[in-house]
Design a protein around this nucleic acid. Structure first.
Lengths: 342, 342
DNA sequence: TTTAGCACTCGACACTTTAAAGTGCTAAAG
DNA sequence: CTTTAGCACTTTAAAGTGTCGAGTGCTAAA
C-alpha cells in the first residue's frame, strides 16, 4: 500500500498547490508548475490510482483533484518538509511576547501573535485540572477587598469585592483562613460548588461579607470560562468562506463554547495534536483542521493553544510557528524581556 | 416643508415595514397592510412627493421605496412611538446584570446583555479622561507583587508583577509612595508616558524592581485599550449581509480600533446619541447606524455603550432597551443583587 | 383632491448555448 | 512493462435570451 516516489511527489504537489490556489489541481498544471518529467497522461494514471486509494478526491468528473482527509494526513505525516520561520515572523514573535503579566496575559498575547502570523482564529483552553493553592484577601480601601487566588500551577487570578460595611482586619484574617481551609486543593472547575458550601457553612458568622466575597469569586470564575477567540475575522479571506452560510455556520460554531470545549478537551495531551477534517469527532468541524499545542511551564500543563482553519490550511507554516512558540514557552528559547529586535 | 398626517403615516409605515421585511415597500403593500383608507394611486403620489423631498429612495424605477437617512431621521425624531420592553427582556436584564465585580465587569455584562437582546454587536468605550487616584502595591508571595490602580471615578484596575528578587516591605512602601507621588492625578491615557518618566527617575535606586512593576502596569493598560466587541456574529443574520464583501468590510471595520475610536470619541456627550447612515463622518460607517449611550454613575461619566447595526435597525427597541439600561445604571431602577425574577 | 386605468420599466429567474478544463481510454511507441 | 499522444466525453461556469411580475408615473374622469 506504500506509494512510489513519483506518486509521493504528485500527492505532495497536489496538496501544496491546492493549499496555495484553493482550486482543484489538474494533471497539466502539475507537469508545468512542478516540473515532473512525465507527460500529463502518466500523471493522470497516477492521480487515478491515488484517487482509488483514497488520497485524492474529484469534485466532479471534469475537474482536477483535491486532497482527501487521508491525503492531507499522509502529506502531514510523510511528505511535508519542515519549514523555517521567516526572520520577520521570529522578530514579530520575540518583540510581542514579552513575558510580562500572569499566565493568562501571556496566553492572550500568544493567541494574538499566532492569529496574526497565521491569519487564522486561535482558541485558548486552560487546564481545568489545576487546583487552588491558596487565597489571600487584601483590604484596599474602606469598602473594597481584593481577593487573590493562587493555583498549584502558579497561575494567579484576582477579583475585587465591594463590601457594604467596613471590615475589621481581624475579620479579614478569620475569613481568609476559612476560605483557605475550605478551598485549598479544590479543582478550579469545582470551585463554584465548593463556594456554595462555604457560604452555607459560614455565612451567618460574617453577616453577608462572606457572601459578597464569594459572589465576586464566582463571577470572576465564570468570566474565566469564556474562551478567547482572536482573529475570527481573518478566516473570511479564505475562498472557502465565499458562501455566507458557511460563514454563519462557522461563526456559530466558534462562538459555541460547548463544541469547542468538547473537541479540545477530548484531544489527548500531545505536544502537538493535528486533527484533520473528518478525523474530528464533532461533525460541525469536519471541514476544518484543528491543530493544538500543549503549553507547559516547568513541566506543568497549563493549557492548550489551538488553531482552527480550513482543511486547506498551511500545515507547514502552522506547525513550525506553533513549535517555535512551544520551544519559547518551555524555555528552549529565551523570552525577551525588552524589545531588542531580533 | 412639514408633512401632512397622511404623508407622515406613509413615511412611518414605509420605515417600519422596511425595518421588518428588508424589502422595498410598494404602494399596494401599504394600502393592504397598514389599512390606509386611500387608493394605491394616492399613496403613490405621496410617495413620489416624499422621494422628491428626500425622505424616501427608490433602488430602481420598478421597485418600491426605502427610507433615506433623512427619512430615518424624521422617523426617529418625530414619528417613532416609545415602545415598552417586554417582560421577558426586563427579566433577562435584571437577572443577568447582577452588579458584582468592578466597573469593567459590569460594562462587559451590559454589553453581553444588550448584544443578546438586540442581536447586534456592541462596543464599549471607556472614559479616558479618568485619572489615577492612588496606587497600592501588595506583596502576595516571595516574588509576586500585586499592583492596584484606583481611579478618581472609582474604577479599580490591578495587575501582577513578577519580580526576580525578593523585595523587602520597606522597599515596597518606598516604591508605593514614589508611584503615588509621580502618578496621582495622571490621566489614564497619559499613564504610559508618565510611567516612562518614573522609570528614568527612579530606576537605579531599586535595581530593576521598579522597572518590572512599571512594565506590568504598562502591559495591563495596553490590554485596557482593546475594545470589547461582543456579538459580532449576530449581525450576519441580517439580509444586508448576504454579500460576503459586506461581511468582510464590516468585520474589518469593527475590528479596527481606530475607526471605532474616532467615531465614538468624537460623538458629543449626550445621554443617548443616534447617528444614522451618512450622518456618520466615517465613510465606512455610512451604511450603519450607531446608537451610543453614556454610562454614568454618581454623576461621573464612565464611558459609552454603543450599538452598531444596519441603518434598517429596530430603532424603537434599541432605544428603549438602552434607556432602560441607562436608568438602571443611574440608579432610577434598583440593581438586583440576587436572581429574584422580575 | 382622489382614483381607475394603462403603458412602461426593470430586476429576478429560468432556460439555452458555448467555451474551457480536465478526464479516461486506446493504441502505438520506447 | 512503462510511457505517451490523441481523442471522445463530461461537466461547470459564463454569457446570452425570454418571460413574468411588481411597481411606477401619468392622464383623464369622478
Amino acid at each position: 500500500m506504500s506509494l512510489d516516489e513519483r506518486k509521493k511527489k504528485i500527492l505532495s504537489s497536489v496538496v501544496e498547490d491546492y493549499i496555495e490556489s484553493a482550486e482543484p489541481v489538474g494533471s497539466k498544471t502539475l507537469v508545468e508548475k512542478y516540473h515532473l518529467d512525465y507527460s500529463s497522461a502518466t500523471i493522470r494514471n497516477d492521480m487515478k490510482y491515488l484517487e482509488e486509494e483514497g488520497y485524492l478526491e474529484q469534485p466532479h468528473v471534469s475537474a482536477g483533484r483535491i486532497p482527501s482527509t487521508k491525503g492531507y494526513r499522509y502529506y502531514v505525516d510523510n511528505l511535508m518538509k519542515e519549514r523555517k520561520l521567516s526572520m520577520l515572523d521570529i522578530d514579530y514573535i520575540n518583540n510581542t511576547i514579552n513575558g510580562f503579566g500572569d499566565v493568562d496575559s501571556i496566553f492572550e498575547q500568544v493567541a494574538d501573535v499566532v492569529s496574526k502570523i497565521l491569519s487564522t482564529p486561535t482558541v485558548i483552553t486552560k487546564n481545568n485540572t489545576d487546583t487552588i493553592d491558596s487565597i489571600k484577601v487584601v483590604k484596599i480601601s474602606e469598602n473594597l477587598l481584593l481577593i487573590v487566588l493562587m493555583s498549584k500551577n502558579g497561575t494567579v487570578k484576582d477579583c475585587i469585592a465591594k463590601v457594604t460595611n467596613t471590615v475589621e482586619d481581624k475579620v479579614i484574617e478569620k475569613m481568609t483562613s476559612i476560605l483557605n481551609e475550605n478551598l485549598s486543593g479544590t479543582p478550579l472547575k469545582e470551585l463554584h460548588l465548593a463556594l456554595n458550601t462555604v457560604i452555607k457553612k459560614d455565612l451567618e458568622a460574617f453577616s453577608g461579607i462572606m457572601e459578597e466575597i464569594v459572589n465576586s469569586i464566582k463571577y470572576e470564575m465564570s468570566k474565566e470560562m469564556k474562551k478567547l477567540n482572536s482573529g475570527v475575522e481573518k478566516i473570511l479571506e479564505n475562498p472557502e468562506f465565499s458562501d455566507i452560510e458557511t460563514v454563519k455556520n462557522f461563526m456559530n460554531m466558534i462562538t459555541t463554547k460547548e463544541i469547542i470545549d468538547s473537541t479540545l478537551e477530548k484531544s489527548k495531551h500531545n505536544k502537538l495534536s493535528i486533527v484533520i477534517g473528518s478525523e474530528n469527532k464533532e461533525v460541525l468541524l469536519n471541514d476544518y483542521t484543528v491543530i493544538s499545542l500543549d503549553i507547559e511551564k516547568d513541566n506543568k500543563y497549563l493549557g492548550k493553544l489551538s488553531v482552527i482553519g480550513p482543511k486547506r490550511m498551511n500545515y507547514a507554516k502552522t506547525i513550525s510557528t506553533l513549535k517555535y512558540i512551544s520551544d519559547k514557552f518551555n524555555g528552549n528559547i529565551k523570552l525577551n524581556r525588552k524589545n531588542k529586535g531580533g
